[in-house]
Simulated scan of single mutants.
Amino acid sequence: MKKHAISYAIIRFQPHVETEEFANIGIVLVAPRMSYLDFRLETKRLGRLTSFFDSVEAATIRAVLKNYHAELTRIKDIAGHNGNGQTRFEFKLTDNADHLFHALTKDREGIIRFSEVRFAMTDSPKNKLDELFDYYVGRNFASSVYREGLLERHVRNMLKLREIDRNFKKRSFNDGVYSATFPFVEIVDDKPVKILKPIYLGQDDPTRILDHGNKWLFTINRLKQVLPRHIVFAVEGPTGPSLRQRAFREAIDQFRASDIQVVDATKERELLQAVDS
């Protein structure tokens, strides 16, 4: 597919000019040759804003974002793009979207600010917009996969400090149909004797916590005949009392009911005892 040049800017919420602190809340993107101008703005999940900017009332934040969403929608409508590469107007608005984009993102005082304009190439401006939003606002780089990777790195460093990392190897197991790879499998006399699997269960939704826990529970139960008996899950859970904590405790109980040893990944002593046992 043909690639298009696009420009984009990150929309930022900056209520206190004095401190220059801000939070990313959206993306505005333009593909000039397509007369494409669109945006994504976070208007629902505002916990990060209300907790960080605790001197600003939640109702005020919601009102600001609601009004700004309406303003961006109005500007998008003026650009005249209907989402499939065609303008809604019969007459041609030369560089209309591009002019609107640069007027919109021009540096000015206010609660809503913009980053510097950035550039990229893409065959789908809409998909690129979603990708940028997920990265800069959704922070998908801090997803469960990312956090689990950090846990693995923490465990690996701990094993190196204990000078026993050479005993733990990455190993895959399969039953002929289903397979799974574990980052730390203790090998003694060329035989796997223990699995140490870091698992992140601090997702922002209780369902996702249970889903991720159930994934690994299914894996262990499915491969039980080919895995070593001693299996340790080093887990990190959510903070604060909430439904997420309830889901986390339920996941832990299910692990233990399947004879899986569970330790707190954030407590080095527990980890070391699990490794040495």
Rank of each mutant, 00 (worst) to 15 (best):
N82A: 13
R62N: 15
Y68F: 10
H154W: 15
G47F: 08
G110M: 13
A59E: 07
L65K: 04
K128D: 03
R113D: 08
R74P: 08
S51V: 06
F39E: 14
E116R: 04
L46E: 09
F53E: 14
Y68V: 04
V145Y: 04
R118G: 00
R40T: 05
V64T: 15
Y68I: 02
I111N: 03
T73A: 12
L150H: 03
A58M: 01
R153C: 00
K128I: 01
A63V: 04
A70C: 12
S115W: 12
F101P: 10
A103M: 10
K66E: 14
R147G: 07
R139M: 12
I112E: 11
G83V: 01
A103P: 05
R153W: 09
T73G: 06
H102M: 06
T122V: 10
F133L: 05
Y146P: 05
P125L: 11
E148N: 01
F119Q: 10
L49S: 05
T43N: 09
D123Y: 07
N67S: 12
E116K: 03
T105H: 08
S51F: 07
I112V: 08
L65W: 00
S143V: 11
L72W: 11
N96T: 10
V137M: 07
E131I: 04
D54F: 14
N82F: 08
T94C: 08
S143G: 14
A70K: 15
H81D: 15
L151P: 12
T94Y: 15
E148Q: 01
K76D: 02
G138F: 02
D123A: 13
E71Y: 00
H69L: 13
G110Y: 07
R153F: 04
Y146I: 02
T50V: 09
I61H: 00
R113P: 07
T87Y: 05
R118Y: 13
N127Y: 08
Y135C: 02
E109W: 08
N127E: 15
F91D: 14
R45W: 11
N96R: 14
G83S: 02
L129Q: 11
N84V: 07
R147H: 04
L100V: 12
H154G: 03
I111A: 07
T43W: 09
T50M: 02
A59V: 10
T43V: 15
T43F: 07
A120D: 15
N127F: 11
A79F: 10
R45D: 11
G85M: 08
N82V: 10
L129I: 07
I78A: 02
D54A: 15
F133I: 03
F133A: 02
G47D: 11
T73M: 11
I112M: 03
E116Y: 06
R153I: 03
D134R: 00
T43H: 05
V64D: 15
K106S: 09
K126V: 15
K92Q: 09
T50E: 12
A142M: 13
K66Y: 12
L150V: 11
F101M: 10
R118A: 09
P125Y: 04
S143N: 13
K106H: 12
I111R: 01
